[in-house]
Write a protein that binds this DNA or RNA. Sequence first.
DNA 1: TGCCGAATGTCAGTGGCTGACATAATCTTC
DNA 2: GAAGATTATGTCAGCCACTGACATTCGGCA
Lengths: 224, 224
Amino acid sequence: MATPLSASAPADCRVLGLRERKKQRTRDALVDAAHSLFLSQGYGRTTVDEIAASVDVSQRTFFRYFANKEEVALAVMADAEEFFIDCLRARPAEENPLQAMRAAITEAWRTLGTARHTGPGSVTAALELFELIENTPTLLAAHLRHTTLQEAEVARVLAEREGLDPEVDLRPRLLAAVFGAVVRISHLSWSGDPKAHQAGPDGMIALIERHFDQLGPALAGSWR
Amino acid sequence: MATPLSASAPADCRVLGLRERKKQRTRDALVDAAHSLFLSQGYGRTTVDEIAASVDVSQRTFFRYFANKEEVALAVMADAEEFFIDCLRARPAEENPLQAMRAAITEAWRTLGTARHTGPGSVTAALELFELIENTPTLLAAHLRHTTLQEAEVARVLAEREGLDPEVDLRPRLLAAVFGAVVRISHLSWSGDPKAHQAGPDGMIALIERHFDQLGPALAGSWR
DNA sequence: TGCCGAATGTCAGTGGCTGACATAATCTTC
DNA sequence: GAAGATTATGTCAGCCACTGACATTCGGCA
């Protein structure tokens, strides 16, 4: 379902009607305009009117595309998360849950990394978003909430892979939540470490791997 | 520092001046009024004006006590979380990190459970809040954000206990985040299970323990 | 008692967000 | 290709969360 990152899909432009294409274009334009405004002036000092005006649509139209101001900022992230879930679903059944999750997230990052290297909707642009989100309380809150919703979906996928009922067995939801926590801490480390930014997606993958490797030791009885 | 739950501290009323006591009273009144309004009408259908009016205070005053509408709803939770951190700090140094965390949270729940059984600010009232938070997107988002801030503090405490630098060693932040995830899933299970509500704090403790016990199995290679 | 500072009230204004209705653009069907 | 059904958009009015500025009142204290 989800294409790598939100911006206009190159294919299937012909099959969709004019109406759908137009909608996609204004949506993308809104996301791009919002991003550049947010990154240059900051989230709080950017009004919805500004965003709408810079795409020549009314404020009312903006709110027909996005439920609120946060959503336009998190749209790219949301697509990336959905893409991760698609990757997870596609993992072979032989892999155990933890293996599948780790494989899915590195695969997701690598795919997104090769898809587009520049411009709005690129990985580097998406990475800039992390800083913005982390430094904007409202955005961080909205992002965390969205993440927990995705975790519920991840838990469902895991339960299905293993033929379990997620209402009864605690492990799917537990693993999904722990996985989410590890990824989040990795993102946090990433945005606190300028060196990691150069490496692009690979740097992020390496960071996530390091954190996963420390998961066992962190939960071990003694840290000595 | 933190007293068990927010409502008026019984002691030290005499030492504080009239001014401070009055402030504490209006603050508590605002929290109580907000809670009963939120629980009866819902969060979204309650205006700040209503809350302020039912305590005979101007809207402007409300916003001098609470930065926003969410804060008044989460005030009790925030105090409880801070109390947990105090419990964690007080754990003996011999305990390993995971032991200390588990001990601290059961201790926190037990203390809060025995402190007050009825009325606003009681544990049962606090438990009702979980449902409200979980069913109110805005509140859930704000709560999750606040939780991650607390996790940073937890990570600092853990690092200090073990004489580590939380900037270098990944384990403190990792364990704090995983712990937060486990507690959150427990809260979620709790609010989805009416049976658990009867047992009060003990029911919650039992749920958290069960989830912790499943943490190892969830992270194990195979689930078969 | 009288002064200082802190808490509160009032007021005006900004900005996010929504419902209702009218208009204009696309899609459909003949 | 025109009529009519859908759907996207604009406009307008309004609610509500939140803020700055200024005036007023109240508690602390000499």
